[in-house]
Simulated scan of single mutants.
Amino acid sequence: MIVQLSNHKYETAKSILALQQQSYYTEAVLIDNFDIPALNESVEAIRSSKETFVGYFVEGELRALIAYEHQEKKLQITRLVVHPDFFRRGFASYLMKYLLNHHLDTLIYAHTSEKNQPAIDLYYSFGFVISRKFNLPDGHPMVVLERYSSYA
């Protein structure tokens, strides 16, 4: 079941944090970079975030989520995480479809590591293209993927 999350509530923020730490730890191993800011985020940072969080629940447990910031006709995906036990089961795709169906006529973009091929492949499968490459201050290569969402 997909629902919007109330990240300002302590227990919800705690669940978001636990899920993203598990998911981003797996990503950190994959890309060989443990400087992912979300790994060191706090419950209070999530509670005060202005992002919109949408979660995917399985048997009452938060197993995946997508978060974004939306301004007029531009939307940035800020988080897309899946519990490692649920990788490759379509949860990220379900959340992407949800997002695309609810934000038509919008430029949607996301940043990810150039080394995170599973994430890049997911974005490609939804018609995203790499629009820019850049390096973080530590030299880690990143990409920006975007697509104009006129239909899902």
Results as ranks from 00 to 15, higher is better:
Glu59Asn: 14
Met96Thr: 06
Ala13Pro: 03
Ala28Glu: 06
Ala28Phe: 13
Glu69Tyr: 15
Tyr148Trp: 09
Gln76Tyr: 12
Ala13Gln: 01
Val82Asp: 01
Lys14Pro: 03
Ser6Trp: 14
Gln4Ala: 06
Gln22Thr: 02
Thr26Cys: 06
Tyr123Leu: 09
His102Thr: 09
Ala18Pro: 02
Ser23Pro: 00
Tyr124Asn: 12
Gln22Cys: 01
Asp121Arg: 11
Ser93His: 02
Glu59Gly: 12
Thr26Pro: 00
Asn135Met: 04
Ser131Lys: 06
Phe57Thr: 05
Arg132Asn: 11
Ala92Gly: 03
Ser49Arg: 02
Val144Tyr: 12
Leu30Gly: 06
Phe126Glu: 07
Ser149Arg: 13
Arg79Thr: 02
Gly139Thr: 03
Val29Glu: 06
Tyr56Met: 03
Leu95Trp: 04
Gln22Lys: 11
Val43Ser: 13
Phe57Ala: 03
Leu5Gly: 11
Arg89Gly: 01
Gly90Pro: 01
Phe134Thr: 00
Tyr10Gly: 05
Val3Pro: 09
Tyr148Ile: 09
Val82His: 00
Ala110Cys: 15
Arg89Ser: 02
Val82Arg: 02
Glu146Arg: 12
Tyr24Asn: 03
Lys14His: 13
Phe53Ile: 00
Gly127Cys: 07
Arg47Lys: 13
Ala18Met: 08
Val129Gly: 05
Lys14Gln: 12
Tyr98Cys: 04
Ser23Phe: 10
Ala110Ser: 15
Arg132Ser: 08
Leu65Cys: 09
Ala13Arg: 01
Ser48Ile: 02
Ser150Phe: 15
Lys115His: 14
Tyr94Ala: 13
Gln21Asn: 05
Pro118Ala: 09
Phe91Asp: 02
Arg147Ala: 06
Glu72Cys: 03
Tyr94Ile: 04
Glu72Asn: 10
Asp85Ala: 08
Val54Trp: 15
Val3Thr: 13
Lys133Arg: 14
Phe134Gly: 01
Pro118Thr: 09
Asn135Gln: 14
Glu27Pro: 00
Lys97Glu: 13
Phe86Ser: 02
Lys97Cys: 08
Ile120Lys: 10
Tyr68Leu: 04
Lys9Arg: 15
Leu62Ala: 11
Asp105Gln: 15
Ile16Ser: 00
Asp121Asn: 11
His83Ser: 08
Val3Gln: 14
Ser149His: 09
Leu17Phe: 07
Thr106His: 13
Ala13Asn: 00
Val82Lys: 00
Thr112Ser: 13
Ile130Phe: 06
Leu107Phe: 14
His103Asn: 14
Gln20Asp: 02
Asp138Pro: 03
